[in-house]
Design a protein around this nucleic acid. Structure first.
Length: 494
RNA sequence: GGGCCCGUAGCUCAGCCAGGCAGAGCGGCGGGCUUUUAACCCGUAGGUCCCGGGUUCGAAUCCCGGCGGGCCCGCCA
């Protein structure tokens, strides 16, 4: 028995014998988006549309089929009694589910009350040699197919398409929000001689022209701050970061961040900016700032309208876990590290130990509603400015929603000599085996030496924000083509 | 990096525990049907049982190794 592809190739051959191009360059008539026909057409009016055939229901002399164009579906019918014999036979012999067609005809309502185009003219626009894997409107079950061939997932499942509509609208509205506040959207290099701005292992690459090993950026931070040094007061960038770390429901090696930097602002200003952004963009994209997010299987209502709860890291420990980490002796901190089997690379450091414990004990578990966690230990934040009244802390906050870290922000460190000394601490850590410690970036320090105004900066994880908006618990659901291992598929050729 | 689970027709899955002819529904193909919408009715084709090795008279089934995937844990400030 011939395979589907073979059968449809045969259809192509027979079309060619009749002098019909299965891949014409353009539709023969003007095309109206199906969306407009569905919204505005009245019975009796003419309509000409184009789309993919997603379902065919044959009743002898009458055939119903569904057309989908840009996410909108419309039913069409071909009646043997009302069209030429050629047109009816053409549809029967040559049109399959998956094909793109152009149709023209008159709009009417069926007995069941569905808006339908009575087709009087039809043109094949593109022959599909493979049909969709499942009927339109259904879900593909196999995750391998969903992620490897996302185009199929989006093609057949409107709910999946909806997630990506939310994603791209979110990015659009973030841009609008930032533009409206006078931020300039800039571009910084993806390929960098020294990576920085986060604690992560980088992807390495090789620049033939320079004969050097370079890196894919792990954050946007250090170059955006150079823009502030250069004299731009408000800048932002939305772009891909690359971290050579493991893949799970909250992490993809390639992910999208928005970072912004604003001169003459501190982390309190940035908190206001952040909550307004998260709430405003939600309302513009979703029409509401109350969303449902699955945590531990159960959907929880999350309210994204500002202001968000604010708590210091130490207070959050006390409030949610009943632990006073602030006054705890080092021995006891180490005991907690053992208890939660947390290993610190680069030697014991109280600040970094506390942050790791926080992630483990408090963040994921308790911070479901939007919460700003403020004032992290200074040693865990080498790019942030020390706290104005607490030298052991940094002016830093993280935003948690749904138990995920959504944003990270500082009053930026702008003292070049302090920055240099923090870089030296990081180098020492790297020497002690911390592969995620910051490399020393002399060029950045030199930029700071030229003077950077007091600045507030923000890093916002776009993928995770979209997870919250779309109400999905896996980052793979919001990344169009998540990273999956390549696989050799057998090509079935006839 | 550790643990658990999964891989059988284009798709969803049964068969595996307890070894003995490789199955169902959907989809495809053929036929019927002029108001259906997961249309319906009749018929029919379709298989590298993920790959390799082992045990056995005999392996989809049991054992070992590998590949791919999912979930959980660790890690990802």
């Amino acid at each position: 028995m011939a395979s589907e592809v073979e059968l449809r190739r045969d259809v192509k051959r027979r079309l060619a014998e009749l002098g019909i191009d299965p891949y014409p360059h353009a539709p023969k008539g003007a095309v109206t988006p199906v969306r407009e026909v569905v919204r505005a057409s009245s019975p009796g009016s003419a309509a000409s549309v184009a789309g993919r055939v997603v379902g065919i229901r044959r009743h002898g002399g009458l055939v119903f089929f569904d057309l989908v164009d840009d996410g909108y579906r419309i039913q069409c019918s071909v009646s043997r009694g009302e069209v030429s014999r050629d047109l009816f036979d053409f549809f029967e012999k040559f049109v399959d589910v998956g094909d793109f067609v152009y149709v023209a005809g008159q709009v009417y309502y069926t007995k069941r009350g569905e808006l339908t185009i009575a087709v009087s003219d039809l043109q094949l626009l593109a022959k599909a040699l493979r049909s969709p894997p499942v009927k339109w409107g259904h879900r593909i079950v196999d995750p391998e197919v969903r992620y490897r061939k996302r185009y199929l997932d989006v093609m057949v499942t409107p709910q999946v398409r909806r997630i990506f509509e939310i994603r791209f609208r979110t990015i659009e509205e973030i841009r609008r929000f930032m533009w409206d506040r006078g931020y300039v959207e800039v571009e910084t290099p993806v390929l960098q001689p020294i990576y920085g701005g986060a604690a992560a292992r980088p992807f390495k690459t090789y620049v033939e022209a320079l004969g050097e090993e370079w890196y894919l950026r792990i954050s946007l931070e250090l170059y955006l701050k150079r823009f502030i040094v250069a004299g731009f007061s408000k800048v932002f960038e939305i772009g891909k970061n690359f971290r050579n770390e493991d893949i799970d429901v909250e992490h993809n090696p390639e992910f999208t961040m928005m970072e912004s930097y604003e001169a003459y602002a501190d982390y309190n200003d940035i908190m206001k900016l952040t909550e307004e952004l998260v709430g405003t963009v939600a309302r513009r994209v979703l029409g509401t700032d109350v969303v449902e997010f699955p945590t531990g299987g159960e959907p929880v209502k999350i309210n994204l309208s500002p202001p968000f709860r604010r708590t210091s890291l130490y207070d959050a420990f006390r409030e949610f876990a009943g632990i006073d980490v602030e006054s705890m002796p080092d021995d006891e901190v180490k005991e907690y590290l053992r208890k939660y089997s947390i290993r610190l690379t680069g030697g014991y450091d109280r600040g970094r130990a506390v942050v790791k414990l926080f992630d483990r004990i408090v963040g994921r578990e308790y911070l479901i509603q939007p919460t700003f966690v403020t004032d992290f230990p200074r040693s865990s934040s080498p790019l942030a400015k020390p706290h104005r009244s607490r030298p052991d802390l940094a002016e830093r906050f993280e935003l948690y929603v749904g138990g995920m870290e959504l944003a990270n922000a500082y009053t930026e460190l702008n003292d070049p000599e302090l920055q240099a000394s923090y870089f030296r601490e990081e180098e020492e850590r790297r020497r002690l085996g911390d592969l995620e410690a910051h490399p020393f970036d002399w060029d950045f320090v030199e930029a700071l030496e030229h003077g950077m105004p007091p600045t507030g900066g923000l890093g916002l994880g776009i993928d995770r924000l979209v997870m919250v908006y779309a109400g999905v618990a896996s980052i793979k659901e919001v990344i169009p083509f998540p990273m999956v291992k390549p696989r050799e598929f057998e090509q079935k050729r006839g």
